[in-house]
Amino acid sequence: MNLWKEFTKGFIKENPVFIMALGLCPTLAVTSSVKNAIGMGLAATFVLTCSNMIISLIKNLIPDKIRIPCFIIVIASFVTIVDLVMNAYTPEIHKNLGLFIPLIVVNCIILGRAEAFASKNKLLPSLLDGLGMGLGFTLALVLIGSIREILGAGLWLGKEVMPDAYIENPMLVAILAPGAFIIMGLLMGLIKLVNKGK
């Protein structure tokens, strides 16, 4: 098993958002600013990596019939830990991400990797798989977040990157719901086009 491949496959080839279309809800909801995108990405990566590790460790102890509920308990525990820690130490991001922090538990990426990989592989590969997929997720979020924040507010990470005239009258729709959907659709189409060309 090529460990490096396990780690990097989540970046482009099997990117959870663009290629596998998982984890769509938080993707559209938190990408109105790059800061929130990074926050969510890192939180999800933490949960994904930790749960992958634990599940890989206890995979032989769990009876097959109840494996899904057990996975859910493990994932939900890490989500709660992230929720509490973020509320205590990064309250601003916690407030911005709001409902979507507890919703990490139903992020199909995490349950999906637990079922497809961590429950069938050893500790180290599972760790790398989780980390890689999580980073791929984060990359996708940051990409979409950048497009939306630059177009919709003329900012990137809160800093002005567009001329003043643009900031006065930005393409507001980009940071609103409709813009999120349309930008996502166009991006997916673009990526499909690029992949076909290869």
Binding site: L61, I62, P63, K65, I66, P69, C70, I73, V74, A76, S77, T80, I81, L84, V85, N87, A88, Y89, P91
Partner: peptide, 28 residues
């Protein structure tokens, strides 16, 4: 046996969370 495994995992998880909650509650 199924029920016990589920119960065990839930209890361990709840214990860990109670601990984390204890550390963070005041700061929140």
């Amino acid at each position: 046996k199924l029920g016990l495994v589920l119960l065990l995992i839930t209890v361990i998880a709840s214990g860990i969370l109670a601990y984390v909650n204890g550390i963070t509650a005041d700061k929140i």
